[in-house]
């Protein structure tokens, strides 16, 4: 028996040694990416988690553990609640218009041959422009007395409108600027999606009798754009949730126009309540994550690849 067991024993040991060498090689290959991933994403996230259960203030000497107090405070805080509902309203306007308008524009541009790239550039300009700088332009455009929009309204016999100071209008106005900013990028994405639709499908639809524009859209374009639409919707909603610049420049959160990111910014960098701001950030991240996951899975079931 021993004569037989001896060689297998040796070979097993050799196998194990080779296994260690193999796994060491594997870890070596993985480590640069793993290390970067840790440093860039996981460590900051862990720090955020740690901060959110403390009362740490920027520059404070003593910091204490406060458990879930920060979260309790957040959900009872009227400012945070207002920021939450304002953000939801903002997102609810930006998603349908930012996606729908982009789709319509993309379809219109797609049929242009020579002027297509010109339109692409025009619609893409707001994406390249800095929103902070452009916000000041919007401030002028929407100014109650000096702005061209109000001039236009006056010539139409409508009353002077305070877009950026009437509490009922501020969030929709900010959302309109948000749509303006996001549409160009979405147009480019939709154009890419439209270009990928095979011509023969449109030919087949025409032969089958789907030659009217709406029939063609419902039979070929819309179903074929499914994956693009899903991607555009998810990215647009994330962008919308992160609204900050326009609020910071145009309203500074006055007249009840706080949005989530602005509220976090105030807590963290104006009042130096880092612990509380970390808790708010965590709530914000969880919410955006849940929404994105829901959108992806909900839309994924209706999308054909």
């Amino acid at each position: 028996m021993s004569a037989i067991s001896l060689p297998t024993d040796i070979s097993r040991r050799r196998d194990r040694r080779r296994g260690y060498a193999e796994s060491l090689k594997g870890w070596t290959f993985v480590s640069p990416a793993a290390l970067l991933l840790m440093l860039i994403y996981l460590v900051p996230l862990a720090m955020l988690l740690a901060l959110s259960v403390t009362d740490y203030q920027l520059g404070a000497v003593v910091t204490g553990f406060v458990g879930l107090d920060n979260f309790e405070r957040a959900f009872a805080d009227p400012v945070f609640q207002r920021a939450f509902s304002n953000t939801l309203l903002y997102v609810a306007i930006v998603i349908p218009f930012g996606v729908g308008l982009a789709l319509v524009i993309a379809i219109l541009i797609h049929q242009r041959r020579r002027t297509r790239s010109l339109y692409e550039i025009i619609y893409f300009l707001p994406v390249t422009a800095t929103l902070v700088a452009m916000a000041t332009v919007w401030q002028f455009i929407l100014h109650p007395r000096l702005g061209p929009v109000n001039k236009l309204l006056q010539t139409l016999g409508l009353p002077e409108t305070h877009f950026l100071s009437d509490p009922a209008l501020i969030v929709p106005t900010l959302a309109a600027i948000g749509v303006w900013q996001v549409v160009g990028f979405n147009v480019i994405l939709f154009l890419a999606g439209l270009t990928a639709i095979p011509r023969e499908l449109y030919d087949a639809a025409r032969v089958d009798g789907a030659s009217a524009p709406l029939d063609r859209f419902l039979t070929v374009t819309w179903p074929q754009l499914g994956p693009t639409t899903m991607f555009v919707t998810v990215t647009t909603s994330i962008t919308a949730f992160k609204v900050f610049e326009t609020v910071a420049v145009l309203t500074k959160g006055q007249r009840g126009t706080e949005v989530l990111l602005y509220a976090i910014y105030l807590e963290g960098f104006q009042y130096f309540e880092m612990g509380y701001a970390a808790a708010l950030t965590l709530v914000f991240m969880t919410f955006v994550l849940l929404l994105s996951v829901w959108q992806t899975f909900h839309l994924d079931r209706r999308v054909h690849y």
């Binding site: 095979p198 023969e200 499908l201 030919d203 087949a204 639809a205 032969v207 070929v220 179903p223 054909h304």
Partner: peptide
């Protein structure tokens, strides 16, 4: 009626 080279079936 026409049959296309790629069949051009509606994938969805």
């Amino acid at each position: 009626a026409m049959v296309f080279q790629s069949y051009a079936l509606y994938p969805h």
